[in-house]
Simulated assay, not measured.
Amino acid sequence: MRDTIFGRAFTEWPQRVVVDRGDELRVLLTPGTEGVGPQLWIRSMREGDPGARGRLLEAYARREWEMGAWVWQRTTRLAIMYADRYFAIAPMWDEHGEFLWWYVNFQLPFTRTADGVDTSDLHLDLIVEPDLSYHWKDEDEYALAIRLGLVPEQWQRAIEGARDEALDLVTRRAGPFGEDWRAVPG
Rank of each mutant, 00 (worst) to 15 (best):
G68D: 01
E139K: 03
L29A: 11
L78G: 01
A52K: 02
D23Q: 13
W155E: 14
E153M: 08
T111M: 13
M45A: 13
A166L: 08
V71Y: 11
G22D: 09
M45G: 06
G48C: 01
R157I: 04
Y82V: 10
V170D: 00
I5N: 11
T75I: 12
V117R: 06
F110A: 00
Q15K: 03
T111N: 02
R85L: 14
R16C: 04
E98A: 15
G7L: 03
Y103T: 00
E12V: 12
W72V: 08
R163V: 01
A90E: 06
L148W: 10
D118N: 12
P14G: 11
G54T: 06
A143F: 02
V104T: 02
E160N: 14
V151H: 09
D125V: 05
E95R: 14
D131W: 11
A69W: 10
S133W: 09
Q107C: 15
E139F: 00
D115L: 13
I42Y: 05
F6Y: 15
S133K: 13
R147N: 09
Q39N: 10
G37K: 00
L57W: 04
F177M: 09
D131S: 13
V71P: 09
R16K: 15
E34S: 12
T171Q: 12
R157G: 08
A145M: 07
E139V: 01
L56G: 06
R21G: 15
Y60I: 07
F10H: 15
P130N: 07
D140V: 11
W41M: 06
T111P: 07
D125F: 02
L28M: 09
E24S: 12
L124A: 03
D118A: 07
R85N: 02
L167D: 02
R26I: 01
D140P: 04
D23H: 09
V151Q: 02
L56R: 03
A9F: 08
F99K: 05
R2V: 08
E95N: 10
R147H: 06
V151K: 02
E165T: 09
R62F: 02
I80T: 15
E66R: 03
A158L: 14
P31E: 00
W41C: 05
W181P: 09
R62Q: 13
L148I: 11
W155Y: 15
Q73N: 11
H123Y: 15
D168Y: 03
M67C: 13
T4E: 14
P14A: 11
A158F: 09
L144S: 08
A88M: 04
G32L: 10
Y103H: 12
R55I: 03
R85V: 10
A52T: 05
P176K: 00
T76Y: 03
T76W: 05
A143S: 07
A174D: 11
I159M: 11
V104W: 00
F10Q: 07
R147K: 14
W70S: 10
L25E: 07
E141R: 12
P14Q: 08
D23L: 12
A158Q: 11
F177R: 11
G178E: 03
R43M: 06
R26F: 12
R74P: 07
E66Y: 07
L100W: 03
L144I: 05
E12W: 05
